[in-house]
């Protein structure tokens, strides 16, 4: 007999399968984030405005003033600034959405909804994982949407290129979402959220190599850029996108991140990026398991 007939106190009642519930919980927490994102559809469209501003106004302005001062490939015009910054702008969309999405935890806490999740008979790690994946999904979509702007800045899209870009975008979105959840789960107020925006997200963006190459920087800044997880996501994306657009290999490789003088290949960069991601996810899980 199932317990659907008459709800009376019975042995089976109230006995919830905790492990099964935790798997379902990851799914439903992810699903809620995606559903809310989908409901907020105008945001998806409006989110193109900022990258467009960067690409068109900032990009045009900077490349005009840099003209003659030597661009990226041996003084040649084989790589425009807009082409260069295009993968950076994709990463920007991923970074901002990932951190913002994960930070919705702060809102959930403020508005009480987080309590509903925290009193449920599920392992708290399910909350961290579900939230990270929800944010990853949103950030990935936001990043990939930027691809529609590719033809306007001289980036050639091929189906193969898109297939290569998807996993790279996923890795970046995942690691940054894990960062957002790790930070967001420790924040108790909306004021704290503003601090994170100003002192974490913007520095990460500037140091990621989205707007300028990381190869010819002063020493102190080089150190900071190598500590930025986003840097290990921007570079692979750029190399794949630029190679796919027919930019010569020697230029593309010249842009790569070096660590202790060694030029990293894409696989190593992705490993570092995902390493950051899993460590941050572990931190997020730990944060959720703390009880007052």
């Amino acid at each position: 007999m199932s317990e659907t007939a008459l709800p009376q106190v019975s042995a089976g009642r109230g006995a919830v399968n905790v492990r099964g519930a935790s798997l379902r919980a990851v799914y439903i927490i992810w699903y809620r984030d995606v559903l809310r994102y989908w409901r907020d559809r105008w945001r998806v469209g409006a989110s193109l405005a900022q990258p467009l501003l960067y690409l068109v106004i900032f990009g045009t302005g900077l490349s005009s003033s840099l003209r003659g001062a030597g661009t990226f490939g041996n003084g040649g015009s084989s790589l425009s600034y807009q082409q260069f910054m295009f993968p950076g702008i994709m990463s920007m969309a991923v970074l901002f959405t990932a951190i913002f999405g994960a930070m919705s935890i702060v809102w959930d806490r403020e508005f009480g909804f987080l309590k509903e999740v925290l009193v449920a008979p599920i392992n708290r790690s399910a909350v961290a994982i579900g939230k990270t994946l929800g944010s990853t999904t949103q950030a990935m979509i936001q990043g990939l949407i930027i691809l529609v702007l590719a033809p306007f800045v001289g980036v050639k899209l091929t189906p193969l290129l898109v297939l290569e870009v998807i996993p790279l975008t996923f890795a970046l979105a995942f690691s940054l979402s894990a960062l957002g959840v790790a930070v967001g789960s420790g924040i108790r107020s909306i004021q704290g959220f503003q601090m994170v925006m100003n002192f974490l997200m913007m520095p990460m963006f500037f140091l990621s190599g989205a707007l300028f190459p990381l190869s010819r920087l002063p020493g102190w800044m080089t150190v900071l850029t190598r500590l930025d997880p986003a840097a290990y996501g921007v570079d692979p994306l750029r190399r794949v996108v630029l190679s796919g657009s027919g930019v010569p290999d020697f230029i593309v490789n010249g842009l790569a991140i070096t660590l202790f003088g060694i030029r990293l290949n894409i696989a190593v960069e992705e490993l570092i990026l995902l390493g950051f991601g899993f460590i941050l996810l572990a931190a997020a899980i730990r944060n959720f398991q703390v009880r007052d």
């Binding site: 199932s2 399968n17 379902r24 799914y27 439903i28 509903e116 599920i122």
Partner: peptide, 13 residues
């Protein structure tokens, strides 16, 4: 529905 998933209610009920 969110609650039902969190508390592991099976899809049949």
């Amino acid at each position: 529905e969110f609650h039902a998933y969190l508390y592991g209610l099976s899809s049949s009920i």
